[in-house]
Amino acid sequence: MRTWNEISYEIQRVISNTPIAPGAYILKFKKNSTFIAGQALALGISEDIEPRYYSIASGENDDEISILYTEKPDGKFTRILSLLKPGDNLMVSKPFGKFTQLSPFPVFIAAGTGIAPFMSMLLSGKAKGAVVIHGASYPDYFYYSEILLNTLGENYIRCCSRCQPGSFYVGRVTDYIKQWSGLNINRPYYLCGSTEMVVETRDILISRGVPISSINSEIYF
């Protein structure tokens, strides 16, 4: 179990905690220290409860930090997190992590809340020419889709595993990557999601000729 003993943190007040889809929320609080898009931080509500790590979803120049999270069915922490109201206290660590070094014309591949670090990079103006491929089980879970559609247009690809055919690719992200005609082996690839999704996507990219040096992965743990 991770503990708060070794993590320095400050108490922040929640500004908002908004449901954006069934079981999904965006939590906002004041930005007290600078961060680099792609970094994460630890959140907590009590020293007795294990800290949880979340990627920052807001831009580097925003006044507030945004965290995208989903309520886990058996998750005590996310259940409590979802009940936080404006003004409530929150334990917040300093930003950390090195999933931050972007090469030009990146391809971002995410599943679920794995979109968060890429949103931060896009909102920070650091991902010019990006393609975003996002996987979700239902249309509601394409977080930030309005912004992404407006800014990326056809470079925003949604893979929906449980949708009817329509404006989405019907299938998993990995199915899409297997047959993606636009795959360019010379572009840098950035993956974020569950270990299974990241490992499978990475293997597919490698099998399609993308050098391992062009693949950078962030995992949930």
Binding site: S194, T195, E196, V198, V199, E200, R202, D203, I212, S217, I219, Y220, F221
Partner: peptide, 17 residues
């Protein structure tokens, strides 16, 4: 059972967690 760490060289990583 499984692993979350996703190391490129490890077979366990391929089964997820």
């Amino acid at each position: 059972s499984g692993c979350k760490m996703g190391c490129l060289f490890c077979m366990t990583a391929r089964q997820g967690f």
